[in-house]
Design a protein around this nucleic acid. Structure first.
Lengths: 162, 162
DNA sequence: TATTGTTATACTCTATAACTATA
DNA sequence: TATAGTTATAGAGTATAACAATA
């Protein structure tokens, strides 16, 4: 077991130091979802505090990065690349447009599609945010060697690819 | 890089097969948060579909497991163990009580505290849900050898412990 | 003064269904 | 018929602040 706590055995001590007592985590440490959730919470909290004041949410950051790297990408392509519903992209794009970081342009080949491109301000913002993001992640990735980190990413990828 | 796509180079092909075109993920695959989020989404979707109809949410499941393993645990201890705010535990406990799975009992030693205990129905529900949960996770953990899975859990733990 | 539980509010992320305009 | 984008609604998770009862 990853988290070696399995005591149980009818603990009945008076509640003298309740906050500090050793808890029995039962089978929770054997669940992948338990650990993923904990990591996600820590990442989320650090992200919020470090990027406080920035007009960006994590989903918008990913979208902006993909738009900059793939000029003309459509909303549906973006939603597939990020594995979210196309409905979710609408408000997300609204926010990026409101910040002046990206623009929708109706495609001339297929008038149903919006070709998305980043503005110069959007590219500048992404560069600034990219640095802040890696700085934020350093707090976590700094706990690993490069080799360990690569191993972790490959294991994680296997969980959602194929 | 974990996800070996880095093309760019002025793609300008007419939008013939837009949904299938190779995307440039830029630096996103180098971000831990990107992979954690993708895994979390996949786990979440499978959890929702497999446990559809069950009167349980993932947070309630974890709480119930801890209550069964630690009879008399208080809400504040529970919130610390699960790394969420104590305010969040109120509605969560309300739901468990409404299901008849757990009860709050005012502590006699410290009348501010609620000692939490599971009912017989709560213990039965947990046993049933535990099986469903491991069955759900099997879809993901089945991609690994036991050794790989242990390695993954240890790497994840390092991210939120200490 | 500090802690436990509570209430209230707000924001983020995701899901689903139905609609429009285009193909 | 199918697709791209939109609108609307809902549920789940988290954060924060303030309060009452109790220590």
């Amino acid at each position: 077991m990853a988290n070696g706590r399995k005591s149980s055995s009818g603990r009945k001590s008076a509640n003298v130091e309740p906050a500090a007592r050793e808890l029995d985590y039962s089978f929770l440490p054997e669940l992948l979802g338990f650990h993923i959730r904990r990591v996600q919470i820590e990442l989320w909290r650090d992200f919020v505090h470090r990027l406080d004041g920035e007009q960006i949410r994590s989903g918008e950051f990913s979208a902006l990065a993909l738009i900059v790297a793939n000029p003309g990408i459509s909303q549906i392509e973006l939603s597939r690349a990020l594995a979210v519903d196309k409905a979710h992209m609408v408000a997300l794009l609204d926010a990026l447009e409101k910040n002046g970081w990206a623009v929708r342009k109706r495609s001339v080949e297929d008038r149903r599609r919006h070709g998305l491109t980043a503005t110069a301000a959007g590219r500048r913002a992404l560069e600034r945010l990219r640095k802040a993001m890696f700085d934020h992640e350093k707090k976590f990735t700094g706990k690993f060697t490069a080799k360990e980190f690569q191993a972790l990413l490959l294991l994680l990828q296997r969980l959602y690819l194929g």
